[in-house]
Amino acid sequence: MSWPQSDRSYIACVIFIDRTNACNYWSTVNAGRWTNLATSVRDGTRFRVLAVWDTRQYYRAMGRMEF
């Protein structure tokens, strides 16, 4: 995992919760742009998206969404 070089971006991954509790891989997401985190996902697949923003300085934000 490498941290984005801009404070206008963050990293995110998809966790397919019926199969694993680990991220598939990390992607850089730029603010204001659409990004594919996973492709060819079957209908009905349960997953979580983990998004992490870290300035490498004083604070960090993390969010998790379940679908």
Rank of each mutant, 00 (worst) to 15 (best):
residue 1 M to L: 07
residue 1 M to F: 12
residue 2 S to V: 13
residue 2 S to R: 10
residue 2 S to D: 11
residue 2 S to Q: 13
residue 3 W to R: 07
residue 3 W to G: 04
residue 4 P to V: 03
residue 4 P to G: 05
residue 5 Q to M: 06
residue 6 S to K: 04
residue 7 D to L: 12
residue 7 D to P: 14
residue 7 D to R: 13
residue 8 R to C: 10
residue 8 R to N: 15
residue 8 R to H: 14
residue 8 R to D: 15
residue 8 R to P: 05
residue 9 S to F: 02
residue 9 S to V: 02
residue 10 Y to R: 12
residue 10 Y to L: 15
residue 10 Y to M: 09
residue 10 Y to W: 07
residue 10 Y to T: 04
residue 11 I to V: 10
residue 11 I to M: 08
residue 12 A to H: 10
residue 12 A to W: 02
residue 13 C to Y: 01
residue 13 C to L: 03
residue 14 V to F: 06
residue 15 I to V: 14
residue 16 F to N: 04
residue 17 I to L: 05
residue 17 I to S: 08
residue 18 D to I: 01
residue 18 D to A: 13
residue 19 R to A: 02
residue 20 T to M: 06
residue 20 T to K: 03
residue 20 T to D: 11
residue 20 T to L: 00
residue 21 N to M: 00
residue 21 N to V: 03
residue 22 A to R: 13
residue 22 A to Q: 11
residue 22 A to D: 02
residue 23 C to Q: 07
residue 23 C to A: 01
residue 23 C to R: 09
residue 23 C to I: 00
residue 24 N to A: 00
residue 25 Y to Q: 09
residue 25 Y to W: 06
residue 25 Y to L: 04
residue 27 S to D: 04
residue 28 T to K: 11
residue 30 N to P: 00
residue 30 N to T: 09
residue 31 A to W: 11
residue 31 A to I: 03
residue 32 G to M: 05
residue 33 R to P: 00
residue 33 R to M: 05
residue 34 W to M: 06
residue 34 W to T: 08
residue 35 T to R: 14
residue 37 L to R: 07
residue 37 L to F: 02
residue 38 A to I: 07
residue 38 A to F: 00
residue 38 A to S: 06
residue 40 S to H: 10
residue 41 V to S: 01
residue 42 R to Q: 13
residue 42 R to K: 13
residue 42 R to Y: 02
residue 42 R to N: 13
residue 42 R to T: 14
residue 43 D to G: 10
residue 44 G to D: 08
residue 44 G to V: 07
residue 45 T to G: 09
residue 45 T to E: 08
residue 45 T to W: 00
residue 46 R to Y: 05
residue 47 F to I: 05
residue 48 R to G: 06
residue 48 R to W: 03
residue 49 V to F: 01
residue 50 L to T: 02
residue 51 A to Q: 13
residue 51 A to H: 12
residue 52 V to E: 14
residue 52 V to I: 04
residue 53 W to Y: 15
residue 53 W to H: 15
residue 54 D to W: 14
residue 54 D to A: 08
residue 55 T to Q: 15
residue 56 R to E: 10
residue 56 R to W: 11
residue 58 Y to Q: 14
residue 58 Y to L: 11
residue 58 Y to E: 10
residue 59 Y to R: 14
residue 59 Y to I: 04
residue 59 Y to S: 12
residue 61 A to K: 12
residue 61 A to M: 09
residue 62 M to Y: 10
residue 62 M to A: 15
residue 63 G to I: 00
residue 65 M to V: 15
residue 65 M to A: 12
residue 66 E to Q: 11
residue 66 E to C: 06
residue 66 E to P: 00
residue 66 E to W: 01
residue 67 F to E: 05
residue 67 F to P: 01
residue 67 F to I: 08
residue 67 F to S: 13
